[in-house]
């Protein structure tokens, strides 16, 4: 896993944009309605299967579970415990059909913070980012310009965005361009 976080603070930006280093990510595919999966997930992460297009975190914020599709979850873990969590899930799901994959190195995570964060995202994604339409706890897979991303809010003015690591450079430039001073649109933030 890469330990280097890119410093994007030198860019003049309306937002604070940071590439999050070392986010543990595990893809879990299986029948999300099955009791065995729910039990195994709770045992390993302390969290229940989230509702449709939702993301849930534990109290410390260390672990998270996001709804990716009707048969896929993404489990967020602290970087050091990915293998441990996978082993626990394997144990908890033994005898049931499910697949687990360590995706930590496959994806890049960006943390965006600032009052116009919803405006910047709305420039890139065909999604309604109004706070009432996209509250905290909602998780949306969509596209940012030309690549697939997923977005959620960690606070009213702070969002996380994940994309494939192979397009992280593209997304980084997109975010810097869309958040450049002078590009205020005043849609959600006036």
């Amino acid at each position: 896993m890469s330990d280097t976080a890119t410093d994007l603070s030198t860019h003049r930006s309306l937002l604070r944009i940071e590439r999050v280093a070392s986010q543990g990510m595990i893809a879990l595919r299986g029948g999300l309605g099955s009791a065995a999966l729910g039990k195994g997930l709770r045992k390993a992460t302390g969290l229940a299967v989230p509702g449709l297009r939702e993301i849930a975190h534990d109290e410390t914020g260390a672990f998270g579970v996001a709804w990716m599709s009707p048969d896929e979850l993404m489990i967020l873990t602290p970087p050091g415990v990915v293998h441990e969590t996978i082993a626990q899930l394997h144990e908890g799901l033994a005898g049931n059909h499910a697949t687990l994959a360590d995706m930590s190195d496959a994806r890049a995570v960006f943390a965006l913070e600032g009052a116009p964060v919803r405006d910047v995202l709305a420039k890139l994604c065909p999604v309604d980012f109004a706070p009432e339409a996209f509250p905290a706890g909602a998780f949306r897979r969509t596209r940012a310009a030309q690549v697939a991303v997923a977005v959620w809010f960690t606070a009213p003015e702070a969002a996380r965005l994940i994309c494939f690591r192979s397009v992280a450079g593209y997304v980084e430039e997109l975010l810097c361009t869309a958040s450049a001073p002078g590009g205020e649109v005043g849609l959600y933030h006036r």
Partner: peptide, 12 residues
């Protein structure tokens, strides 16, 4: 009909 999101056609 799977994730019940209403999206514009460029997402499909």
């Amino acid at each position: 009909p799977h994730c019940h999101v209403t999206a514009e056609e460029t997402e499909f």
